[in-house]
Amino acid sequence: MLTRFEALLNDYFQSKKLQILGLPSVSYWAEQLHLSANYFGDLVRKETGKTAQDFIQATVIELAKEKVFDSRKSLSEIAYEMGFKYPQHFTRLFKQHVGRTPVEYRSLN
């Protein structure tokens, strides 16, 4: 089930769904897998040690880390491209997971 979830998650991020639908929720993924949100969350936690939300956010941040190094795009553009309604939310989540702001992370390259 986790392998299927990861495949769906990668497909979601590679398509334009991020820009159209925004960041996916745990309930969205549970519905896609025909599971209850609680059961889905329990499965993800059992397999990864992370909550489903943390797993989704970690995946978002890994993709964002790649995009941040593209200096042709502003960080706001990247935030909107990643499905965030507000660039500040992107910056806050990025700093929580990476320990640096996107600007600081970009300057490392």
Rank of each mutant, 00 (worst) to 15 (best):
M1Y: 10
R4F: 09
R4S: 12
F5C: 02
A7H: 12
A7K: 15
L8Q: 07
L9Y: 05
L9R: 07
N10Y: 10
D11Y: 09
D11V: 09
D11K: 15
Q14S: 11
K16N: 15
K17W: 08
I20Y: 08
G22L: 02
S27E: 15
S27D: 12
Y28M: 15
Y28A: 09
Y28K: 09
A30L: 03
E31I: 06
E31Y: 10
H34A: 13
S36L: 06
S36N: 08
N38Q: 14
Y39A: 11
D42M: 11
V44F: 00
R45T: 01
K46D: 08
E47V: 06
A52L: 03
Q53P: 01
I56E: 00
Q57E: 12
T59E: 11
V60W: 07
V60A: 09
I61H: 02
E62R: 14
A64S: 15
A64I: 03
K67L: 14
V68C: 08
R72L: 09
K73I: 02
K73Q: 15
E77V: 07
E77S: 13
I78Q: 04
E81T: 09
E81D: 14
F84D: 03
F84K: 00
Y86T: 12
Y86F: 09
P87R: 07
Q88I: 12
H89S: 15
F90Q: 06
R92L: 10
R92E: 11
K95D: 00
H97G: 00
T101R: 03
T101G: 04
T101C: 02
T101H: 01
P102M: 00
R106P: 01
R106C: 06
S107W: 06
L108I: 13
N109M: 10
